[in-house]
């Protein structure tokens, strides 16, 4: 807190004039960057379409309502498939993510210099690529269907689960591990008695959290052909069957709320 003395008063300011100017310049730069990027982004935008939006919205709303309720009969099977894609995908991801997490955690990795960076690279690659993009790739490689969706979901989830788990492993209390080591326990026993109980709550929380996210993600995988309710969405969009689209949105909303409720319950049970 710079204090300035002048003639017979003491001036207090939160920051020195220089820091204040720098701060102002920083905000100005951010604002300028935003305006500039906005300009670049909208170079090719046809503003007539944008201004037209309210009319479009009213028009769209008119076509979307009421939803076509009878279509629900055709949605049960895709919904079941969506659930399976999310659940099996999550299970597969857990199986693959756990070893990666232990290899990536500084205190359990066999080699900080070599294995750890490799594990971290696996994590960041998996995290960078959205499951929809994985699905896009997999559909083109192994063909459309729920299997592509499952693999896409699990490939994306590995990074997420492994990242949160390796952070949890790095935060464990070393004293407890040391105490188990001191009893003459083997490496595996130290893992099971000293480390695993400490990370179990985080593990359960992370898995259920990811399952919840995966339910959301698997609802749209069908847009690229990877199974689930998204297939119906895509089909309905293609023929502009908006009342069906509305119903699908409602079904997705319901399943998202349900999965969030379940995951909150399970996380609560494990604390």
């Amino acid at each position: 807190m710079p204090i300035e003395r002048r003639a017979n008063e003491i001036l207090w300011r939160r920051q020195s004039p220089v820091a204040q100017a720098a701060r102002f310049a920083g905000w100005l730069a951010l604002a300028a960057l935003t305006v500039f990027t906005f300009e670049v982004m909208t170079r090719n935008t046809i503003w007539a379409f944008f201004l037209d939006a309210p009319r479009q919205a009213a028009d769209l709303l008119g076509r979307m309502v009421p939803p076509r309720w009878s279509y629900i009969d055709q949605l049960w099977w895709p919904l079941w498939e969506t659930l399976n894609i999310a659940s099996i995908g999550t299970l597969l991801a857990i199986g693959m993510a756990l070893p990666v997490a232990f290899l990536a955690a500084r205190n359990t990795t066999p080699s900080v210099a070599f294995v750890r960076p490799l594990a971290l690279f696996v994590i960041v690659s998996s995290r960078s690529i959205n499951s929809l993009i994985w699905a896009l790739l997999l559909v083109s490689i192994i063909g459309p269907g729920a299997l592509a969706g499952i693999i896409a979901i699990s490939l994306r989830s590995i990074g997420f689960i492994a990242k949160l788990m390796y952070e949890a492993i790095e935060e464990i209390d070393a004293n407890q591990v040391e105490a188990i080591t001191a009893t003459g326990a083997s490496g595996g026993q130290v893992l099971v008695y000293g480390i695993w109980p400490q990370i179990l709550p985080a593990f359960a929380g992370v898995c259920v959290f990811r399952w919840d996210i995966n339910i959301r993600e698997s609802t749209v995988l069908g847009l690229v052909g990877a199974g689930g309710i998204g297939l119906n969405l895509q089909a309905s969009l293609n023929v502009l069957a908006w009342p069906q689209v509305t119903l699908i949105f409602l079904v997705i909303l319901a399943s998202v709320i349900a999965s969030e409720w379940i995951s909150a319950r399970v996380r609560h049970a494990f604390i």
Binding site: A53, L237, V256
Partner: peptide
């Protein structure tokens, strides 16, 4: 929070036209 970005994007593309806007 309830809807995937992709679903929102579908709606917004329908409303505002294709493109980054």
């Amino acid at each position: 929070r309830s809807f995937q970005e992709v679903i929102i994007a579908i709606l917004f593309v329908a409303l505002f036209g294709f493109g980054p806007l």
